[in-house]
Design a protein around this nucleic acid. Sequence first.
DNA 1: TAAAAACCGAGTAAGTTACTTGGTTTTAAT
DNA 2: ATTAAAACCAAGTAACTTACTCGGTTTTTA
Lengths: 156, 156
Amino acid sequence: MRLSTRGHYGLKAMFDLALNYGPEPITLKSVAERQNISEHYLEQLMAMLRKAGLVNSVRGAQGGYILARPPLEIKVGDIVRAMEGPIAPVECVSEVDPSQCDQSDFCITRLVWARVRDCIAGVLDSISLDDMCRESEKIEQTDPANNNYVKDKGGH
Amino acid sequence: MRLSTRGHYGLKAMFDLALNYGPEPITLKSVAERQNISEHYLEQLMAMLRKAGLVNSVRGAQGGYILARPPLEIKVGDIVRAMEGPIAPVECVSEVDPSQCDQSDFCITRLVWARVRDCIAGVLDSISLDDMCRESEKIEQTDPANNNYVKDKGGH
DNA sequence: TAAAAACCGAGTAAGTTACTTGGTTTTAAT
DNA sequence: ATTAAAACCAAGTAACTTACTCGGTTTTTA
């Protein structure tokens, strides 16, 4: 019942882009450094997020990545599905074309897994990147010592 | 976000033992046949369930397996934990000794995974094998054609 | 004593994961 | 025009996991 690092890192990276959301793109290198992820590996994950339409990229010097939509409009569920595929504790209750077994109509275990799937999807789809950013600000207020990976905001 | 077949088959097998719950042990062979699981593989899964204290075994001819407790006292969560380990979408929110990263105190993604973990555990721990048996009877009443893997109950 | 059953340990093919390596292409700044 | 910074791309790979199989031994009942 584990996520792979794709989903784990994918959310970290997207959250990083949300915390640093603005008009300018964020370099993959800086995300990788802040989030402590191998740069080349994160590149592959970013490609998946881009193909899923969750981030846009800007090529060339001063380029980088930006969220394709504002943080409020991106749900954790979108990210997890992009990185891990349809939510499905077992294949026969996959959100997308579940496989049928001969007893699927009467299978009680299947009903259990369907409930698990729905509860996971419910949680993931109820949390937006914006929710996470606001949560982060709350923590920052109670303990200003931690900067939560936000790019240097102070005057230059 | 997938269970392995261990959890999948493990629940099927336990549900089978619950449907056929009684004073006599059920042979692994019959469970394997009804549930369409490789006999030798199921043997290994049964060993895990036995070590977790969820089933008792009776050796020798006419032997087999019986639930260690009545179906009402066995939750799906017990079975999944026995087969798949502690519930943990990512390692750092494992139910059992979660690994710490340097930011765990302030990590927002971690809070998301903790919520996922709690919702999964909540569903799994709210369903007992007895619940599943009752659900099965309900379906049997609406459509008597399907026998839901229950051992032949008719007169001998 | 034979058969039925659980128990046990080792092997294994295929797939997945979490990367790394070594580039090419695009673009802004100089 | 050149340089450097960045995204983009394809392939390889070591380690691990999964889902089994194989070939037995031991226990117990009929």
